[in-house]
Write a protein that binds this DNA or RNA. Structure first.
Length: 943
RNA sequence: GCUCGGAUGGUGGAAUUGGUAGACACGUUGGACUUAAAAUCCAAUGACCAGCAACGGUCGUGCGGGUUCAAGUCCCGCUCCGAGUACCA
């Protein structure tokens, strides 16, 4: 073998590991550059070819930056808490830590094979106590903070206590629960310690609140939407209902405006920013409260608060709709409607939120029998409940204006409720009218004749006068539920005294995850940590002790929930800066040097989850003085998903007989996924392998076409359950990591989703062989000449430098692979073996194919790694052209080309072109109406 | 449903600011080398029409319109596919 990639790659991977080639320094004179991949979850299926796509791209960029003289931080680690390991533990009884460790080792092996330039000395794992110690510490900081809207930042809770003690809470403009009651300083000072704690909990950035969850009674646990299929649990197929539970929440909504504004300061794609903007969902309007007629709760009038973006349409209100789970529903429903309402509420609890949002076709709802009072006309407004109103959305109630909102319109039509037209000269007999600009309000008393904007202002003013509303900005962004009823997550550093949460002090962290017998919820429906026998906190000894010692005097119960997957991943980028620090999550010095991530690469599926939460935590930590940056990720690129090409076999309904693809349409068949490894490139199934694959197929019969069983193909997400996973190991073995790296880039634009297909891999492999041959003679002896390269070769080189540099900067790696191919093809034809050209070429290709580059670099006589070799500089002088092949078009259609000097004037060009024999032939005697000449580009003759 | 993407030969894709559509690869076909095969190299390859050949012609970037001397690219209206949709990570 001339190009012995297996040997070369092994050699250099060992060299890099031994010499710690990619270790980043926290002390350096070089400018810093931080390149990060989104945190991988080490799944049991190992790495498939989709995972490395982004890693290869970021690795190319990291290596490029090293050539450009930067001190590059390019770390890797594992987001190692998570549901799949826990599921596996439930099924097999194996400790999630054991399977996680095994998965990580497998990941590492696979990653090492591909030749990434990670600084492994900085590896972190979220499930390690020395890591989650700091996740717990951040949680405590959030608990010890409140958000001050006057200064727009988080402040220590102790400062809030001082304010309360001095002046009560009336002057405080804080992000807090809706139900805070006003108290004076003297009232505060007279509160018991417990009462004070209860009040403070309403202000803390992490707090306990009732929130809605998907509860599965049979499994005794809360389920992710992901775990629910067609309204029942994926595991077992049990019913799932919406239920309220007390949970830890994160007051991310306090940061809505800053999360929105911050988007303007970062270099992310516009589409991703737009997703976040929509997720945050800022809308400006008014809050309005409607009095419920004849209902008093605790001797006070009952009110329904609503948020509307169109207070100008207040006179169009003809009914109200509450979410079925709205707290008032029970209290206002009249005896007459009780049964109907209860049945509806129960039915709604069975539907998922997503289902309710997606389903706009079925209109349902029931009347409560209660009426609200219109704030101005004082007319009765019937109160309905309907599942199109979501409890967690705004106030969970809407003032329905059927003439102006299509959903309200359809609801009104369906239930025969009145529709009152309040728009001048607008026909609403067919549908609602939601236009704003130019709309004139009518039938609305004091708003009559006013245009939209003026009416809006006037309506808010009048609502304020009667104390039933005010201008308000609303955000769709909801506080994030932070509790999980799981085992395999960070324990909360929390114990309870009289039901009130207390934080464990920093010096006693980490609070380690306890051992449990089984990973399922307890028989009484408590989370898995409820199975632990040693899960109580001794406040005096400051240690975890047996549950039996709980006396509520010095020993207290610990929190049984764990933190969600996004806890550890919201701040990991900072831990990489100083991963072994035992005193701080990272030193000030390291944080100041590395600041934040310069380039972040990962999938767009994180657009509104991880990427919003980590922005939130970063802002919070900065507010509290622990960080100096407002944003975690300066530039972000989304890599597209690599899809799998699934294979299907067709089983005749009710038989163990399979028909080939062609016959499948004529029969009643069931399509079954077959493992893609049993199918060749011509879609032919290896029948013997298939029979052995699963016992149920051992006796299967096959009806073939021309002796072959042909499978059906379909492009789907690459997944273990679809048997379409292709892993990179075989490719590294057969073609080498450099080929894999370049091939994955060659597949297409980084950001685009694309199906995996190894068909073209030989093209890339051949290219590397040709590259190798440039540096070697027929007998594979290294041979590079020190002579003078031809003008053509220098032109080829500099053209390549220019294009490849531009491509890297634009993250257009697929086109740079093509450029390298063209370059090597040209140099091969030119028979160029001059050092002057071949040495810069090695550096140019090193980020893409680092192993072959190192080998050739060494052969060129260098005794250190190519990693920090200076990047070649493009010189324009080699590319100056004096002529251009002009396309000559007639009526926009290119007919022929003509080589012309580039320094010709428009007139000269026209003269030459018109005089040309082919032009006359094309015109065939016609006189052109117009001749368009764009010098250096095109000539178009019209007429 | 809502939000954000995408659609170009047999296949993956290229086309910088509206200026030669299909670069570069794969595949296919033919040829060279070889006893043969593999490997390697050379040539052709969007579809259709015409022709002995040379020179050509028509259509063509998901669909329907529009703007322009010129549209894959810009505008309007659709179709289909993918991602996210708040407890998968």
């Amino acid at each position: 073998m001339r190009y012995n990639f297996n040997q070369i790659e092994k050699k250099w991977q060992e060299y890099w590991a031994k010499n710690q080639t990619f270790k980043a320094e926290n002390n350096s004179d070089k400018p810093k550059y931080y390149v990060l991949d989104m945190f991988p979850y080490p799944s049991g299926a190992g790495l498939h070819v989709g995972h490395p796509l982004g890693y290869i791209a970021s690795d190319i960029y990291a290596r490029f930056k090293r050539h450009k003289g930067f001190n590059v931080l390019h770390p890797q680690g594992y987001d190692s808490f998570g549901l799949p390991a826990e599921q596996y533990a439930i099924q097999t009884g194996q400790h999630p830590a054991v399977t996680t460790e095994a998965n990580i080792n497998r990941y590492r092996e696979q990653l090492d094979q591909i030749g990434f330039s990670f600084d492994w000395s900085r590896e972190v794992r979220t499930s390690e106590p020395d890591y989650y110690k700091w996740t717990q510490w951040i949680f405590i900081q959030l608990f010890e903070s409140w958000y001050d809207h006057n200064s727009e930042r988080a402040r220590p809770i102790s400062e809030l206590e001082e304010i309360f003690a001095a002046e009560g809470n009336s002057g405080v403009n804080a992000a807090c629960d809706d139900d805070v009651e006003q108290f004076s300083s003297s009232q505060w000072n007279s509160f018991s310690s417990e009462e004070k704690q209860k009040q403070l909990l309403k202000y803390r950035l992490t707090y306990l609140a009732e929130s809605e969850v998907n509860w599965c009674h049979q499994l005794g646990t809360v389920l992710a939407n992901d775990e629910i299929v067609n309204g029942v649990s994926e595991r077992g197929g049990y019913p799932v209902i919406r239920k309220k539970m007390t949970q830890w929440s994160m007051r991310i909504s306090a940061y809505s405006e800053r999360l929105l504004q911050g988007l303007n300061t970062i270099d992310w794609t516009e589409s991703l920013k737009e997703s976040q903007r929509n997720w945050i969902g800022k809308s400006v309007g008014a809050s309005v409260r409607f009095k419920v007629k004849g209902i008093r709760i605790n001797d006070k009038d009952a009110w329904i608060p609503v948020f509307t973006t169109r207070p100008d349409t207040i006179y169009g209100v003809t009914f109200m709709t509450l979410a079925p789970e709205h707290e008032l529903v029970e209290k206002i429903t009249t005896a007459e409607h009780k049964d109907e309402v209860e049945a509806y509420v129960e039915a709604t609890a069975k539907r998922s939120e997503r289902e309710r949002m997606a389903d706009v076709k079925t209109i349902s709802g029931v009347f409560t029998g209660a009426y609200a009072e219109h704030p101005f006309t004082k007319e009765p407004v019937p109160i309905w409940i309907g599942d199109y109103v979501l409890a967690g959305y705004g106030t969970g109630a809407v003032m329905a204006v059927p003439c102006g909102d299509q959903r309200d319109y359809e609801f009104a039509k369906h239930f025969d409720l009145p529709i009152r037209n309040i728009f001048q000269d607008v026909d609403i007999s067919e549908e609602a009218y939601s236009g704003k600009e130019g709309t004139v309000i009518a039938n609305s008393d004091f708003l009559d004749g006013l245009e939209y904007k003026a009416a809006l202002q006037k309506a808010i003013l009048e609502l304020e006068k009667i104390g039933q509303g005010k201008g308000k900005t609303n955000y769709r962004l909801r506080d994030a539920v932070f509790s999980r009823q799981r085992y395999w997550g960070e324990p909360f550093p929390v114990y309870y005294v009289n039901g009130l949460p207390q934080m464990i002090e920093k010096e006693h962290l980490p609070l380690r995850l306890p051992e449990v017998e089984k990973y399922l919820p307890t028989e009484t429906g408590e989370p898995p940590l409820g199975n632990a026998t040693d899960w109580a906190w001794d406040k005096e000894k400051n240690e975890v002790v047996e549950n039996s010692k709980i006396d509520h005097k010095t020993v207290y119960p610990l929190e049984l929930n764990t933190m969600p997957g996004w806890a550890g991943s919201s701040w990991y980028l900072f831990r990489y800066m100083d991963p072994h620090n035992e005193e701080q999550f990272a030193s000030e010095k390291a944080l100041q040097y590395w600041e934040n991530v310069d380039l972040y690469i990962g999938g767009s599926e994180h657009a509104t989850g991880h990427l919003l939460y980590s922005r939130f935590w970063t802002k919070f930590l900065t507010d509290r003085g622990f960080l100096t940056v407002e944003e975690p990720f300066k530039k972000l690129i989304n890599q597209g998903m690599i899809l799998g090409t699934s294979a299907f076999v067709y089983r005749l309904e009710g038989e163990n007989k399979f028909v080939s693809k062609k016959m499948s349409e004529a029969h009643n068949v069931q399509a079954i996924h077959a493992d893609v490894s049993m199918v060749n490139a011509s879609d032919e199934l290896d029948i013997e392998a298939f029979k052995k694959w699963r016992p149920e197929f051992a006796d299967a019969e096959f009806i073939t076409e021309n002796g072959q069983y042909i499978v059906g193909r379909e492009v789907e997400k690459m997944s273990k359950s679809k048997y379409n996973v292709v892993n990179p190991d075989d490719i590294c073995e057969d073609y080498g990591a450099d080929t894999l790296r370049m091939y994955e880039m060659f597949l297409g634009p980084l950001e685009q989703a694309k199906p995996w297909n190894t068909a073209g891999i030989t093209g890339v492999h051949n290219f590397l062989k040709k590259l190798w041959n440039l540096y070697h003679d027929h007998d594979n002896n290294f041979e590079v000449s020190d002579g003078k390269a031809s003008v053509d070769s220098l032109k080829t080189l500099h053209k390549t430098i220019k294009k490849v540099t531009e491509d890297i900067e634009n993250f257009s790696f697929n086109t740079s692979v093509s450029t390298f191919m063209i370059c090597v093809n040209e140099l091969s034809v030119q028979k160029c073996n001059f050092r002057e050209v071949l040495e810069p070429l090695v550096v140019l290709i090193a980020p893409y194919a680092p192993h072959i580059a190192e080998e050739l670099w060494q052969k060129l006589g260098h005794d250190s790694s190519v990693t920090t070799a200076a990047y070649p500089v493009y010189e324009e002088k080699y590319l100056i052209e004096s002529t251009k092949e002009y396309p000559i078009s007639f009526n926009g259609k290119m007919r022929f080309t003509l080589e012309l000097r580039l320094d010709m004037s428009k007139e000269e060009i026209e003269k030459t072109v018109m005089a040309h024999e082919k032009t006359q032939q094309q015109l065939n005697g016609r006189e052109p109406k117009k001749v368009i000449i764009v010098p250096g580009k095109i000539v178009n003759i019209v007429g």
